[in-house]
Nucleic acid binder design. Structure first.
Lengths: 146, 146
DNA sequence: CACAATTAGGTTGTACACAATCTAAATGTG
DNA sequence: CACATTTAGATTGTGTACAACCTAATTGTG
């Protein structure tokens, strides 16, 4: 039972996603507290650790977030001294985000955080990979509808 | 690949959950707009449609939300005329939430909403049920750690 | 019964999310 | 080149989430 009629929230997949997402974010809260950043901020850092630099809209494409969310978030990362923001020389509309040395240095904490999160799911690697791809595919299908 | 080292967000299960949850909530936004309520408000209504009446903390236990989230949310449902709030006679600390006739009547929209959401996942019932239970179990294990 | 401890909700402050709107800077067309 | 259109970000307003704190009501213990 996970469908039509009227099911209690506990048996609906949307509530499972909503509630699992909040539970994991809570886990990150504890792990990221020493770094002084939040989970969405950490996601932005993950992209920057991979790309070195990124525009606001490239970040938005990766994380599926709009400027209304990213602008203030990136300002906070800037005030923490982890990134710098600057208008592109080619196109004054574009804002480039780049890592500071402090932001780059924070990268070294990532592996242990990922490891702890994986451990807290209680799943072994193969199951984790399988579940990740099923959920990512679902998200992709739902997003495709808009 | 869905784990330690430093993976891009797209390959991490936490980002899949976070992003799938937001995608589905966006879907609900469109479906619930005619009713004038949000997805978290709809979750509270689902519980009330099942139980008829509930205290704030019972609702919190079901949805894993605290009073800091529920108090303003329930006030909005009250100002929409969907529920009424009142202190319990037995224990003045307890606030009972009950459906109004309008709130009860809204129940009839639930089945089609659930059906549309299920359809938008692109999954058939068996897969949906299977995925739901895997994600719910994961959330339970993560919550058990606190 | 007195009183410390607990419990139920509410409030405050911070940080997302996202719709809607705004501004400035490109871009495209005649 | 002039000008309507598009595009990139920022801003505003509403609604979650959640930590931290507050108050009032109840409970447990001596």
């Amino acid at each position: 039972m996970a469908v039509p009629q009227m099911l209690p929230p506990e048996q609906q997949i949307c509530f499972a996603l909503y509630s699992a997402s909040r539970a994991i974010t809570g886990r990150y809260r504890a792990l990221l507290a020493p770094l002084g950043i939040t989970y969405p901020q950490y996601l932005a850092m993950l992209v920057l650790w991979e790309t070195g630099t990124s525009t606001v809209s490239q970040l938005g494409d990766r994380l599926h977030l709009d400027s209304g969310t990213l602008s203030p978030l990136l300002k906070r990362l800037e005030s923490l001294g982890l990134v710098v923001r600057g208008r592109s020389a080619n196109d004054e509309r574009v804002v480039e985000i780049a890592l500071t040395p402090a932001g780059d240095a924070m990268r070294s904490h990532a592996p242990q955080i990922a490891e702890q999160i994986c451990a807290s799911t209680g799943l072994a690697m193969p199951e984790l990979i399988d579940l990740q791809s099923q959920i990512a595919a679902l998200a992709e299908r739902v997003r495709a509808l808009t």
